[in-house]
Design a protein around this nucleic acid. Structure first.
Lengths: 140, 140
DNA sequence: ATAATTGCAAACCCTTTGCAACATC
DNA sequence: GATGTTGCAAAGGGTTTGCAATTAT
């Protein structure tokens, strides 16, 4: 029994093939997929799975802290199995979303707390521009 | 003729009472209202104005750079007449959105660019937690 | 056997669009 | 008078919900 199965069982949640597939897909990608993308990607293995199941599963994964939701400014959310606070890069050209490896920004809350009376709990940092591929295309 | 009227005319856009009301409301609030909130607030002065007009006006204001759109993770967007990149504080308790005055974060792009091959153009920084009011309520 | 989950369809909410009437220039 | 804008209603897109059938425990 792997990690995920035990976590689900501990919480009294059932371990279904659909759930495992969704979690595993998120753990094995760096693409920060939307619900739609997850749905389409898994359709070949789970032809009868519905989008509603994807949404319900993502909601559950959020609630138990296994997934975080990103609002990059599109119409839809994106999902990340890396639940640590880490900054994201978003490409205006192709809508790609990448992680930014720059740990100095991973925990600004302490610093920012000096400048506000809010009790801070979380942060989301988004940097927008053009990814290396789209940058190249622009100079052509 | 004030600033806004001249800007609109320069761009070949018509100056209507609805547009002026929306822009002025945004300029005179720190509340980062949603389209719905703008619509409801202005309903007393413009009883026949439709939500569609609010959305069309906000779209136009975005396009000419007079307003920025915030995606704080709710179902709807919020709007800010301060178009400078500045960090925002969002309250989990009451969904309030405040500006964070901490100019050290206003321009992280230069620093962040050292750690990525993206050509960066913009940033959006969101800090989540509990506002002073909601903080008080929690300790009761 | 019990209780949770799936999958379908319908509902929901926010936002956008088409178009005739209207206001601005 | 020409053109852009408004306001209405309908459509659109993403997400959520209700519920009977199914599956995990």
């Amino acid at each position: 029994m792997d990690d995920i199965s035990s976590i689900l069982k501990e919480k009294g949640l059932k371990v279904t093939p659909q759930r495992l597939a969704i979690i595993n897909m998120l753990k094995n990608t760096k693409e920060h997929p939307s619900a739609e993308t997850i749905y389409k990607t898994l359709s070949s293995d789970f032809p009868t799975m519905s989008l509603a199941t994807v949404y319900k599963t993502l909601e559950m994964l959020k609630n138990i802290g296994l997934v975080q939701e990103l609002n990059v400014g599109e119409g839809s959310f994106r999902y990340d199995a890396n639940v640590n606070s880490h900054p994201h890069l978003i490409c205006y050209g192709c809508n790609r979303v990448d992680d930014l490896d720059y740990s100095a920004l991973d925990n600004l809350i302490g610093e920012v707390s000096k400048y506000t009376d809010y009790l801070l709990k979380d942060q989301k940092l988004y940097f927008y521009g053009y990814c290396p591929d789209c940058k190249k295309k622009m100079t052509n």
